[in-house]
Amino acid sequence: MAAGGFVSVNTGNAKDANNILIPKDDADAAFNAAACIGCGACVAACKNASAMLFVSAKVSQLALLPQGKIEAKNRVLNMVKQMDEEGFGNCTNTGACEAECPKEISLENIARMNREYLY
């Protein structure tokens, strides 16, 4: 998280909340990704001990919202780098993470993160 799972905004001086309009579907999708409770089941379930579902849920939440778009590229690069450095394994798309997630976080988030990473 410290590697970029945030929007770089200091306290105070934020614009009126309704100045940023967000389509309901995007807000709902961001919320569904943000529902992750960080329990670690996805990593524990993965034969590669990959943390892709966890990281992608945060990357997705912020990539779906205009507030998060500005830093989207750096965020995904830094968070993936951090994940690799901490020794988590690679994702081979087995889907075990999604199957065991108590909050039913979707594999789509991994796809979205890969897209953010590549483009």
Partner: peptide, 14 residues
């Protein structure tokens, strides 16, 4: 909601 109760039960997380 807190995400702390990490346990493998009968071979499955949670």
């Amino acid at each position: 909601i807190c995400g702390m109760c990490s346990m493998y039960i009968n071979g499955r997380p949670h």
